[in-house]
Design a protein around this nucleic acid. Structure first.
Lengths: 99, 99
DNA sequence: TTGTACTTGTCTAAATATGGTCAAATTTAA
DNA sequence: TTAAATTTGACCATATTTAGACAAGTACAA
């Protein structure tokens, strides 16, 4: 599940056209299309709007949004998986220290 | 292990001062200090130089370098771990498709 | 075949990240 | 207690990313 897939799912379940959701978000429909196809990132603040519009947990939107950002960085990398795991270790280590 | 820690380790094992390695890399010592403390990223091309200087596997340098970039993005994020895992799934899925 | 929905390519301004410098402060070692 | 080594803070130019607009193209029903 990507952030784009999630947004499309939410929109379709609400019976909205791209143009309608785009209007509610204050962007053009072309842009929303790219967002749903994970070709462009949505502005982070707009996650709040999605949360209000669709009553969906903001935590899930945030983590999918962030995951998309990470993926776009490692997508073409040889060492993608290794790097992700190393970063994970670093996060865990930091969490330990601050616990 | 972070990229900064790795670089420091390599430098110290080679018996070099920061100023000496900085010179070989063509940067100032202040900058190298920040690199070793993971406060600044090293230019990616310079990984090749490190590889040549210290005969250390480039793959490890690359993945640590990339991990550092990822970590700097998720460092202050609530959903850091979840996002990393989601990104991991996406990488695995992509690898399956292209296999 | 015309309209509706969606996608895609090209372009842009503004924001952010990169890749540093330099001087001053601090730490460590002799 | 100095001197050498390292760290830190402030600053800066350039490169890249973000967050879009807009027009043209495609897909598909009616």
């Amino acid at each position: 599940m990507t952030i784009g897939q999630k947004i499309r799912e939410l929109r379709e379940n609400a019976g909205l056209k791209q143009r309608e959701l785009a209007y509610k978000l204050g962007v053009g429909e072309g842009f929303l299309s790219k967002v749903e196809n994970d070709q462009k990132p949505l502005k982070r603040e707009d996650l709040t709007k999605l949360n209000e519009l669709f009553k969906t947990p903001i935590e899930e939107l945030e983590s999918l949004w962030l995951a998309n950002k990470l993926y776009s960085i490692v997508r073409d990398e040889e060492s993608a998986l290794t790097a992700l795991k190393v970063a994970e270790e670093q996060v865990k280590y930091k969490n330990l220290k601050n616990a």
